[in-house]
C-alpha cells in the first residue's frame, strides 16, 4: 500500500498543500534569486537550514562558481515617430550602453533570413526582431543569438521580441550568448506588442529612432552552491536516485514557477517518504541546483565532480517545466527501462496520472542523460507555462496547491519505487 499511502498523505492527508505553503513562505521571504545575487545566497542558506530542520540526512553544500551579471537601470525611449517608452528587460550577459545611451534608427526584421537579406541596412542600426513564436526551442534561438547575428552586420544594439506565445505587455528575459569573433552589442527583450507595433510602423515606411540605455555589468564569477540532502539507502546506499529542481531564478517576479516549485516538489518527495517512515534500498538524493538559468552551471560542476560514480546512478529526475496539472512523466532510457517506468506509473491510476512519454529532459540532468543514465522529467499541462516564464508574472499566483500535491505524488512515487526496487533500472 505504499503508493496509496503516498497519495493519501499528499493529496488528501496532513501533507496536502505543504509544498505550496513552503514555496509561498520561501518566495515571499527571499524573492527572486538570480545567479551571483545576495538573494540567491540567502535562498541557499534558507534551504540548508530548512532541510536540516526537516531531519534529512547528509545535508551539505557543494561549492560552485557562477556568473554574476547585474541588470542595472535600463530604458528604451522611442524618439521618432513619437515619444514612447518601450518596455524592455535586458538579457542576461548583455553588455551595457554608455551612460548617455545609444541613439540609432531601427531596422525591423521578422526572421534571421530577413536579416541576412537586408544585411546591408543593419550597419549602425538597432535591429528589432519581430519573430513569430513557433515553439520555445525553436524561437529561443532569437534570444540566444539575436545580438551576435545583428552585430555581425554592424548593428549597434538588438531588441528581441519576448519568447512567449501570449503577452499583456510583459517582457521576458533570459540568457543570451555572445561570440568571440563578433563585437558585443547591448541586447534586451521587448514586448510582443511593441515588436508588432514597430513592425507595423516600419512596413509603412515610418522612420523609427530609439535611445537605448542599459546599465548592465558583468562581475567576476561569484561563489555559490548546489544544495544537497539525502535519505540514505538501506541496502545499496552507494546507489543513487537523484531528484532535483533549481534554486536560482531570474531577477524578475518571484521565480515561483521557474523553478521554485520544481525544487519544492523534489524536497516534498523526501519529506513524504520520511513522514511515512520509509527508507528505500538505494539513496534518494535531493539536489537543488544553482546557476541553471546561465546554462546549467551548477549541474555541470556537479557532473564533473560525481561522474566517476555514474555507474551507481539508477535514475536522474528534474522538474523544471512547471508543476501544473500532471499527465505523467517523460522518460529517456532503453525499451526495458521504459516498460518498467510504465509499470510504475500504473500505480498512479487512483489519481489518473499514468502516462509515460518519451524524451525526459532538463538542462540540469542533460549530462547524465547523454552519458546513458535513465532520466525523468514531469509531464504537466504547460499550455500557460511560457506566458509567465522569465517575466514579472512568475509569482505564487501562477501556482495551484492541488496541482502541486498531484505533482508531488507523482514525483514521490517514481523516485521511491525506483530507489527501492531490487535492481537498478536497466540501461541500453
Amino acid at each position: 500500500g505504499v503508493v496509496k499511502d503516498i497519495i493519501n498523505l499528499t493529496v488528501y492527508g496532513k501533507a496536502q498543500n505543504r509544498s505550496y505553503n513552503r514555496l509561498a513562505l520561501f518566495t515571499d521571504t527571499i524573492g527572486n534569486r538570480v545567479s551571483g545575487s545576495e538573494n540567491l545566497n540567502k535562498a541557499i542558506k534558507y534551504m540548508y537550514n530548512a532541510l536540516q530542520s526537516d531531519k534529512l540526512e547528509n545535508v551539505n553544500l557543494e561549492p560552485v562558481k557562477v556568473p554574476h551579471w547585474v541588470r542595472g537601470e535600463e530604458s528604451a525611449m522611442m524618439l521618432e515617430p513619437r515619444n514612447y517608452s518601450v518596455v524592455i528587460l535586458g538579457l542576461g550577459s548583455s553588455i551595457g550602453t554608455p551612460p548617455e545611451g545609444i541613439t540609432a534608427e531601427v531596422l525591423v526584421v521578422a526572421s534571421f533570413d530577413e536579416l541576412e537579406k537586408r544585411a546591408a541596412e543593419a550597419k549602425g542600426k538597432i535591429v528589432v526582431y519581430n519573430q513569430a513564436f513557433v515553439n520555445y526551442g525553436e524561437t529561443v534561438q532569437y534570444r540566444s543569438f539575436g545580438a551576435v547575428r545583428a552585430a555581425k552586420h554592424g548593428a549597434v544594439a538588438s531588441l528581441i521580441r519576448s519568447i512567449t506565445p501570449f503577452s499583456i505587455s510583459s517582457p521576458h528575459t533570459g540568457w543570451q550568448d555572445y561570440s568571440s569573433d563578433v563585437p558585443k552589442i547591448p541586447t534586451a527583450c521587448i514586448t510582443v506588442e511593441d515588436a508588432e507595433m514597430m513592425a507595423r510602423m516600419a512596413s509603412r515606411g515610418t522612420k523609427i529612432v530609439i535611445n537605448l540605455k542599459m546599465g548592465a555589468k558583468t562581475y567576476p564569477d561569484a561563489d555559490s552552491f548546489n544544495t544537497v540532502a539525502e535519505i540514505t539507502g538501506s541496502k545499496f546506499p552507494e546507489q543513487v536516485v537523484l531528484i532535483s529542481g533549481h534554486l536560482d531564478s531570474w531577477d524578475v517576479g518571484q521565480g515561483a514557477m521557474d523553478d521554485g516549485a520544481g525544487a519544492f516538489i523534489s524536497w516534498e518527495a523526501l519529506s513524504l517518504i520520511k513522514d511515512l517512515g520509509l527508507r528505500p534500498k538505494r539513496t534518494l538524493r535531493l539536489v537543488l541546483w544553482t546557476g541553471e538559468e546561465q546554462g546549467g552551471v551548477g549541474a555541470s560542476q556537479y557532473y564533473q565532480l560525481h561522474k566517476v560514480n555514474i555507474s551507481k546512478y539508477s535514475l536522474v529526475m528534474e522538474s523544471d517545466i512547471g508543476t501544473f496539472a500532471p499527465f505523467g512523466i517523460r522518460f529517456t532510457g532503453g525499451d526495458k527501462a521504459h516498460a518498467v517506468m510504465k509499470a510504475v506509473m500504473q500505480l498512479l491510476k487512483p489519481i489518473n496520472v499514468t502516462s509515460v512519454d518519451p524524451y525526459g529532459e532538463g538542462t540540469d540532468i542533460s549530462y547524465w542523460l547523454q552519458a546513458g543514465v535513465p532520466g525523468v522529467s514531469l509531464n504537466d499541462d504547460i499550455s500557460k507555462y511560457f506566458w509567465f516564464h522569465h517575466s514579472n508574472g512568475d509569482t505564487m499566483s501562477v501556482q495551484d496547491p492541488v496541482q502541486m500535491n498531484l505533482c508531488a505524488a507523482v514525483w514521490t512515487t517514481v523516485s521511491y519505487i525506483v530507489a527501492d526496487m531490487e535492481e537498478m533500472l536497466p540501461r541500453n
Binding site: 500500500g1 505504499v2 503508493v3 496509496k4 561522474k307 566517476v308 555514474i310 555507474s311 551507481k312 539508477s314 526495458k336 527501462a337 516498460a339 518498467v340 509499470a343 510504475v344 500504473q346 500505480l347 552519458a371 546513458g372 543514465v373 535513465p374 519505487i417 527501492d420 526496487m421 531490487e422 535492481e423 537498478m424 533500472l425 536497466p426 540501461r427
Partner: peptide, 25 residues
C-alpha cells in the same frame, strides 16, 4: 569523460520486475 556506464539492472525478466512493482500498489 565519465567512467564506462554500468549496465544497470537487467538481470531479471520484465515479468518479475512488473510483479515486484505491482506489490507497491
Amino acid at each position: 569523460k565519465p567512467m564506462q556506464v554500468h549496465s544497470g539492472g537487467g538481470e531479471r525478466s520484465l515479468e518479475d520486475i512488473s510483479m515486484e512493482i505491482a506489490g507497491y500498489s
